[in-house]
Amino acid sequence: MKRDDIIEYSLDSHHSAEEGKAIRKKIWFVTALLTIITAAEVLLGVFWNSIGFPWSVVKISFILLTIVKAGYIVMVFMHLGDERKALRLVILAPYALFIMYLLFILLNDASVLYNVRQALGL
């Protein structure tokens, strides 16, 4: 049932055949990118020791590559990049803030507990 007192946002999210072509091109580009990043991660995971990269560098590059992958999935596949900025902030900002806080608390405590375990020989 169509009501005239509310805006049907879902009804006007259509696009034309030409626009669809451009969107599909973008989708295939992101697909290639995600595949390459995953392959790079696996190769790095298998060969980092024999190439001689230090583990700390490998670890940080894993995390950065993952965040790049996640960014493309959220912004392109989930269309969050096409939504209004206010919605983007409502979704991402509180989440990022909370998770960074949680990670800081947990990882900080974990390294303290590790030292306690070592000192007490547990």
């Binding site: 989440y95 909370f98 998770i99 949680l102 990670l103 947990l106 990882l107 405590d109 974990a110 390294s111 507990l113 590790y114 375990r117």
Partner: peptide, 13 residues
């Protein structure tokens, strides 16, 4: 996020 953060906690501990 909580599950993976707790994984990080155990991993470092």
């Amino acid at each position: 996020g909580g599950l993976l953060a707790s994984l990080g906690f155990m991993r470092h501990k």
